[in-house]
């Protein structure tokens, strides 16, 4: 983790130093930016938002902290995206798992394929933005699943996991969720609508 302390620095130094840190940081390395000027903080936040870098902002007293998380995209990826991508299809994709296996037929084979697919996802370039789990697909993210460690690895690399809350509830597995975050139909639809592509299993 890197801490960028720009307290007391005049506009636009906070932005310059944030930008420098972003382009120098290893992809996925979290950055914490400390500021004490609300205008500078707003400008840095606008810049990050404009460039699709995800962050969280908190403030205590006069001090404002902007945290760019491990799952924040590096600026290099961001630039490439804004430069080269045609509108509405920026190479991003999400994966939808609406079953706990791939395909029909042998359940044993289907589960092995699902495991292999998730394992292989880890080396995809780029990684999916999100993986969505619905219906029996939620078994993949609950205790007892054999792909938890692979999914956790993906999550650590910044892949967002949306798990259908109604489905967890239906299977009585709300308390058994091991990876990902509980989501709803609205967010899931929004994620699929916004994605350049949906890989549907």
């Amino acid at each position: 983790m890197q801490i960028i302390d720009v307290k007391g620095k005049a506009c636009p130094m906070p932005l310059i130093e944030t930008k420098r840190a972003l382009s120098e940081a290893a992809s996925g390395e979290p950055l914490h930016i400390l500021l004490d000027n609300a205008t500078s903080a707003r400008n840095v936040a606008t810049f990050l938002k404009d460039n699709d870098v995800e962050f969280e902002q908190t403030s205590t007293g006069n001090e404002i902290e902007i945290r760019i998380n491990a799952n924040g995209k590096s600026l290099a990826e961001v630039d490439e995206k804004t430069w080269c991508a045609p509108e509405n299809n920026n190479g991003s994709y999400v994966v939808l798992m609406a079953k706990d296996r791939i395909g029909e037929g042998s359940a044993e084979l289907g589960e092995a394929l699902a495991g292999a697919m998730i394992n292989t996802l880890k080396v995809m370039e780029p990684l999916p933005q999100k993986i969505i789990f619905m219906n029996s697909g939620v078994h993949l993210v609950t205790n007892g699943s054999r792909v938890i460690s692979d999914l956790k690895a993906l999550q650590n690399k910044g892949v967002d996991m949306l798990v259908c809350g109604t489905c967890l509830d239906y299977f009585g597995k709300i308390d058994a969720l091991a990876v990902g975050r509980i989501s709803n139909m609205l967010d899931i639809l929004q994620a699929m609508k916004d994605a350049g592509k949906v890989l549907n299993f």
């Binding site: 636009p12 932005l15 310059i16 205008t39 707003r42 810049f47």
Partner: peptide, 9 residues
């Protein structure tokens, strides 16, 4: 480099 004055925002 990031030299974007506040007025631009």
């Amino acid at each position: 480099m990031g030299v974007i004055p506040g007025a631009a925002f």
